[in-house]
């Protein structure tokens, strides 16, 4: 199945090779957890970031349980300060 991902701010560096600017489509097996998706993107475990799934704020402890569905959108960004 396919999901959309956006990696904002500094995190664009973890975009897959087919990514453009800060977003990409990702083909993943059904049932993959958020935690596994983050691993697949090679986002380091100790990195401080915020994750939205379809616009809803996810808490870190939920990453191991939640499995996105086809067409879902994941947005990940660092807690950057404003300007």
């Amino acid at each position: 199945m396919q999901i959309s991902i956006k990696l904002l701010g500094e995190l664009h560096q973890y975009l897959p090779a087919n990514g453009e600017f800060n977003q990409s489509k990702l083909n993943i097996p059904t049932g993959l957890t958020l935690q596994k998706i983050l691993s697949q993107l090679k986002v380091p475990d100790d990195l401080d970031f915020i994750l939205l799934l379809n616009g809803s704020l996810m808490q870190e402890q939920e990453y191991v349980n939640i499995t996105p569905k086809s067409g879902d959108e994941i947005i990940i960004f660092p807690p950057i300060k404003g300007g």
Binding site: K6, L8, G9, E10, Q13, L52, I80, G83
Partner: peptide, 18 residues
């Protein structure tokens, strides 16, 4: 790198998503 590449305008996608 983030500030250099996108300037402070990098924030817009974040606040708009949030």
């Amino acid at each position: 790198q983030g500030y250099r590449r996108n300037g402070t305008l990098a924030m817009m996608d974040i606040t708009n998503s949030f």
